[in-house]
């Protein structure tokens, strides 16, 4: 879940969240549900809906999520992309990486530059700031690049 400040964060919202905002009226708080990559809107939930019966919202959204692709626009290429994750095109096959908060994600590595690493997760390329990785993970990436 992502907290977005309506006064300062609108411009930084991904396209899917901006599209969901258009379905959500003008009253805050509101909730946007997007694909995992943020590219597509799944549902915008207005304050009125939240206020009227939050259980209905929960029930209806859960049902809807069973029918949609939550991964994102490139998920149709997952099979090809998954194969690519293990190919020579990747700097690294999928392995665990840890961020500075101790959270771990499993991702292949496609590219590394001075400030970010491009992870590949379930076929989706995700740029990730090097500064947010743990020292150990940054070191492992450095060794990977120097190989």
């Amino acid at each position: 879940m992502v907290f977005a400040n309506s006064k300062t964060d609108y411009q930084d919202l991904p396209a899917g969240a901006k599209a969901a905002q258009k379905q959500s009226g003008n009253t805050i708080p509101m909730v946007f549900v997007t694909t995992a990559d943020g590219s597509e809107s799944i549902r915008g939930i207005s304050y009125d809906k939240l206020k009227n019966d939050i259980r209905d919202v929960d029930r209806e959204l859960r049902k809807h999520l069973e029918t949609v692709d939550v991964i994102g626009s490139s998920s149709g290429e997952t099979e090809v992309a998954d194969a690519a994750e293990t190919s020579d095109a990747m700097l690294s096959e999928a392995r665990a990486w840890t961020n500075s908060d101790g959270k771990t994600i499993t991702a292949a590595v496609k590219a590394v530059n001075d400030t970010s690493v491009t992870f590949v997760i379930n076929g989706n390329e995700v740029p990730y700031p090097l500064a947010n990785l743990s020292a150990d993970s940054r070191m492992a990436l450095k060794e990977l690049v120097n190989q």
Partner: peptide, 8 residues
């Protein structure tokens, strides 16, 4: 999915 709570 990603879920955003959008408020002030």
């Amino acid at each position: 999915p990603l879920i955003f709570v959008y408020t002030d």
